[in-house]
Design a protein around this nucleic acid. Structure first.
Ligand SMILES: NC(=O)c1ccc[n+]([C@@H]2O[C@H](COP(=O)([O-])OP(=O)(O)OC[C@H]3O[C@@H](n4cnc5c(N)ncnc54)[C@H](O)[C@@H]3O)[C@@H](O)[C@H]2O)c1
Ligand SMILES: NC(=O)c1ccc[n+]([C@@H]2O[C@H](COP(=O)([O-])OP(=O)(O)OC[C@H]3O[C@@H](n4cnc5c(N)ncnc54)[C@H](O)[C@@H]3O)[C@@H](O)[C@H]2O)c1
Lengths: 251, 251
DNA sequence: TCAACTTTGTGCAAGCGTTCACAAGCGGTA
DNA sequence: TACCGCTTGTGAACGCTTGCACAAAGTTGA
């Protein structure tokens, strides 16, 4: 059993494997993958605006990162830029999509059709980005059969058959925290290897399952920490003779 | 203008400041702060179960991290453990809460009361953790005055006055992406310095504003990347003489 | 009181990720 | 063709994070 985001991924590089896309894909740092997804979104917007070429500087600005970092990130997927000119937007889009595995559709199942589950099921942003919502599950019999966002809710007990039928590759957990681990176990036994978890619990999963969590309370608390730090710094500065406006009042 | 998560925070350490909590708070790495929030949640659960003492090993297991990392994280906030015994759960809870600034209430405003905004406004997990939802805003006049989760929705034009009246310290953006930057600007001019953004756009904010984003499409794409990587590895292993079950079929 | 045992707190080294800086390469121009 | 200016791609340095390993410090039991 490994916990959230398997750290010991033991990247065993086969000795004489060709230095192609496959090999390259393993080497991309997780942080870079997350940024590639952001670049992709920015680039998609560019395509719609009719932009055909973009420099690393421009794209970095739009994505809110350092241009060197952006170029390094792009270099992980290959050399598709033209020196002196920049990147062809469409070429870049297609290469990022390939690396992120977006050439294939990934069916999503949402478990727990409450407040959040409804919002997710109704959200148009998933299908439009290649993540069709293929199944919804809840334990509440009153919900079974009720269509949400165009898809009828199934009972949680049917999760195994429905998931394999509809080739679900990503499971989203939006149940109360108490039920999350059990739901997770059922998803895993149904063959789902990627899980997005909204419940505020640490899921225990086998090594081969990839879990990502969205924890709003944690996000809030990080923001709270920064508020507190800022307040403390201000207090500190005042006792050290620096006014809140940054002017040294007691030099 | 700095983009998302101000990198150049220019930590100017005042020379002879006392090595107390204030100084210590600055030194805590962001990654550790996020984990402290997780430890806090696990510990809160422990308190409810009547657990009074816990070892780093146990807590690390429950939080899904390495025990050495956990001890290092806790050491950032001070030495509150007892060697040979472990940590007093309640003591730890109160110290983490103090460091995260949770001794103070942080009022939250949600902007954009659509699918997601409704779910957030109705979510009980925020108030119960010290983040009361104090205001809701939307541009839709039909929504103005309608109570959601017990709080009447205000019109976006009243954002400045309402936010300062109710001392909002955290703004949550749940509007369509096109409106997000404008909403963000209004929150910032209303004095909100911490923003949680659900819209899939990169917000531009002044240096002193802290932005955290929750980007579900990016999370999905990271999972997609792992699916693709796994598939590629399998294909690679097969061509390299390793069957899908991990057995070397051509040694 | 003392020895055996347990668990914390942390110095240190290894590993990643980020940033800098610049050679290499390309298009445009004379 | 040769030169110039611009932008990419990347080696190398730097700094942050992680994980190991162990001394320090406490408890327990005799
Ligand atoms: N609502 C939010 O904005 C929000 C924000 C952050 C986190 N969360 C988290 O997301 C999760 C869901 O939140 P919510 O507000 O939608 O809760 P909710 O109570 O509105 O909905 C939960 C749904 O899960 C179903 N359910 C319960 N047990 C189940 C099981 N074993 N199998 C399948 N379905 C089951 C319930 O019938 C219900 O429909 C919670 O863990 C919550 O902490 C929600
Ligand atoms: N629904 C989801 O599950 C989900 C998931 C991921 C991301 N998101 C993102 O969250 C955001 C909201 O999603 P949603 O599904 O709730 O959308 P929605 O269309 O249901 O709701 C958007 C709300 O924002 C309001 N609004 C529009 N412009 C505004 C403005 N200038 N000021 C104030 N309010 C304004 C609208 O009146 C509407 O009520 C979007 O950016 C979406 O991409 C949503």
């Amino acid at each position: 059993m490994a916990a959230q985001r398997g750290e010991g991924d033991g990247v065993v590089t086969s000795p004489e494997a060709p230095a192609d896309v496959r090999e390259r894909a393993r080497a991309i740092p997780e942080a870079a993958v997350a940024r590639l997804a952001v670049y992709l979104r920015v680039l998609s917007g560019m395509v719609e605006q009719g932009v055909t070429t973009i420099s690393s500087e421009e794209l970095a600005g739009a994505a809110g990162v350092n241009s060197a970092k952006l170029r390094k990130d792009l270099s992980y997927i290959g050399s598709y830029g033209t020196r002196g000119v920049g990147y062809d937007v469409e070429v870049l889009v297609s290469h990022i999509e390939r690396i992120l595995g977006l050439t294939r559709k990934h069916s999503v199942a949402v478990v727990g059709i409450g407040n959040l589950g409804h919002a997710l099921a109704n959200y148009g942003g998933f299908p439009s980005r290649g993540f069709p919502v293929a199944a919804l599950f809840d334990i509440d019999p009153d919900l079974t059969g009720v269509p949400v966002g165009g898809i009828p809710v199934n009972h949680i007990d049917d999760i195994t058959s429905v998931c394999s039928e509809r080739e679900v590759s990503i499971g989203v957990i939006a149940t109360p925290p108490q039920a999350a681990q059990a739901v997770c176990d059922r998803l895993v036994s149904a063959g789902v290897q990627c899980i997005l978890n909204f419940a505020p619990v640490v899921l225990q999963v086998p090594d081969y399952v990839e879990v990502r969590k969205v924890d709003l309370a944690v996000e809030m608390q990080i923001l709270s920490f920064h508020v507190a730090r800022r307040a403390d710094e201000a207090a500190n500065d005042v006792v050290n003779g620096i006014g809140v406006d940054g002017v040294v009042i007691r030099p």
